[in-house]
Design a protein around this nucleic acid. Structure first.
Length: 471
RNA sequence: GGUGAGGUGGCAGAGUGGUUAUGCGUUCGCCUGCAGAGCGAAUUUAUAGGGGUUCGAAUCCCUUCCUCACCUCCA
């Protein structure tokens, strides 16, 4: 599988010789997550699912930043402890991303639980003369790392020239960044240099090295983290270990709204909770995968509405495949025979995999998935979804749903029984040609989200996922 | 100002030298008791503008214009 690596600015073959180790920069837990965060997480969740479906072993680590000025400010504003804030938002993170059907990472390390790891990393950097203690804290000396700027393709002198950062006179060089910041207020930790808090970037270095080691396979995050966050992570980690930090840097494009980046400061965010209530998890996942991960994607209601239509086709396909016609009752013409259909589906599935293996081209992969859906629905329209067809397609179909993290919900038994009773009643009316009465029942079912599919001599039904924004 | 990524039909979105992907939308048919799903046909013979290379370019080169992101916290 090839993935575009930001560092080498080229596609790189993913090393699958051992466990595929993935580290994704997660969120700072001081506020609600929005769909921008969700996109990044969904992309990596899907990547992970794809690798696992291919039989690979994946170790997936995603951190929570739980030490940060924004957290402290929020705590002050709410007259609560930082801990209260982070606990609250970690809980809501899990609640929301579980609803998005995001598989839990193997571990969710927190900055506050790795203070000692960070301290020993900083110590090592000071020993190797890559860092120094100053009045306000411990700083990484950017000029000591010759390759600084290699990820973001920035030149050091240009950075200085265009620097918008306030110059801190206590630093040797304006580009130096904090590894440890002295502080008297809480939360604070003891360190060999004085009490205070870790700088932002050091946590990821410490946690990557601890949980994944050096030269792990994929380091991911949003594009906006390339500079300075990931650039600084590379500097710290490579100076500390003397080894390559990560093999592939994979960055996910921003979610925009009306063409502008969605962000807190612009006040144009859509929270995960909001979009889940409005569109539901399947639509959100399909939407997030409908563009290439590296490009921006625009949150537009029109596009999301289109996605609903696709999802309805998927639901239809699923119901047809799970309720096939008996082989002996169906008589497909030669061109719709299983011998023709099966290789066709197999080809689509292969194309689906190939698309994902080519820099995780999810929009292309989704095309092939929908080709399968369409193929099945076409057969279904003529009552040709037979048991043998279903037997050959359903397992593949389910595998794809699993990779994409899509989930079809089926109603509980009691409800199903009630629905089927009504359908039996309706069909009785239909055989008597009492269509008005039959239609009343169909409308009644429609009101509770049940759509009927009439086939020769039998009626299938779909309990559609409820999507609030559907007109 | 610097750096990076882009500009494809009404919309979304592949394709990186040689059969006008594909999906959605719209229109008209067909199928159906009516629907759902589906089928057929039509809609625009798309590739930001201008140059160049080539037998041939959306695809390579030059140039102009435009958009977005990053250069401060950000997924």
């Amino acid at each position: 599988m090839k993935i575009f690596d930001t560092l080498s600015a080229a596609e790189k073959e993913l090393d699958i010789s051992g466990i595929v180790r993935i580290y994704v920069c997660g969120v700072t837990v001081y506020d609600e997550s929005h769909i921008g965060h969700a996109r990044t997480i969904i992309v990596f969740d899907t990547l992970r699912r794809f690798l696992e479906s291919d039989g690979l072993k994946v170790k997936f680590i995603q951190n929570f930043t739980d030490v940060d000025d924004k957290i402290i400010n929020r705590a002050k504003a709410e007259n609560a402890s930082a801990d209260t804030i982070t606990t609250k938002y970690i809980a809501s993170y899990f609640d929301e991303f579980d609803r998005l059907n995001v598989k839990r990472a193997d571990s969710y390390p927190k900055a506050t639980e790795h203070i000692n790891d960070m301290i020993s990393l900083i110590k090592g950097l000071i020993d190797k003369d890559f860092a120094y203690v100053s009045k306000n804290g411990v700083y990484f000396s950017v000029s000591k790392f010759k390759e600084y700027g290699k990820l973001s393709k920035k030149k050091i002198d240009e950075l200085i020239a265009g620097a918008r950062v306030e110059v801190d006179e206590t630093k040797r060089d304006p580009l130096d960044f904090a590894l440890w910041k002295f502080a008297d207020d809480y939360p604070r930790w003891e360190s060999p240099w004085g009490h205070g808090r870790p700088g932002w970037h050091i946590e990821c270095s410490a946690m990557c090295l601890k949980h994944l080691g050096s030269d792990f396979e994929i380091h991911g995050g949003g594009r906006d983290l390339i500079f300075p966050h990931h650039e600084n992570e590379i500097a710290q980690s490579e100076c500390y270990t003397g080894r390559n930090f990560a093999k592939i840097w994979m960055h996910v494009g921003m979610v925009t709204i009306k063409g502008e980046k969605m962000s807190k400061s612009l006040g144009n965010t859509k929270s995960v909770d909001f979009v889940l209530k409005k569109w539901g998890p399947n639509i959100i996942r399909l939407f997030c995968l409908s563009g290439h991960y590296s490009k921006p994607i625009d949150y537009s209601e029109d596009l999301l509405k289109e996605t609903i239509a696709k999802w309805r086709q998927v639901e239809n396909c699923y119901v047809e495949l799970t309720h096939p016609e008996k082989d002996e009752l169906s008589n497909p013409p030669p061109n719709l025979n299983i011998k023709v259909i099966q290789p066709k589906i197999a080809l689509y599935k292969e194309n689906f995999n190939d698309a994902l293996k080519s820099d995780f081209n999810t929009p292309l992969a989704l095309n092939f998935f929908f080709s399968i859906v369409n193929e099945v629905n076409n057969l279904a329209a003529h009552d040709f979804v037979t048991e043998s067809i279903s037997n050959s397609i359903l397992p593949e179909f389910k595998k794809i749903l699993e990779v994409l993290g899509l989930k079809i919900t089926e109603p509980p038994h009691e409800e199903s029984n009630r629905i089927e009773e009504l359908i039996a009643k309706r069909n009785a009316f239909r055989t008597q040609k009492k269509y008005q009465e039959a239609d009343v029942i169909r409308e009644q079912l429609e009101h509770v989200g049940v759509i009927l599919i009439d086939h020769k001599g039998r009626t299938l039904w779909i309990k559609q996922e409820k999507i609030c924004s559907e007109v």
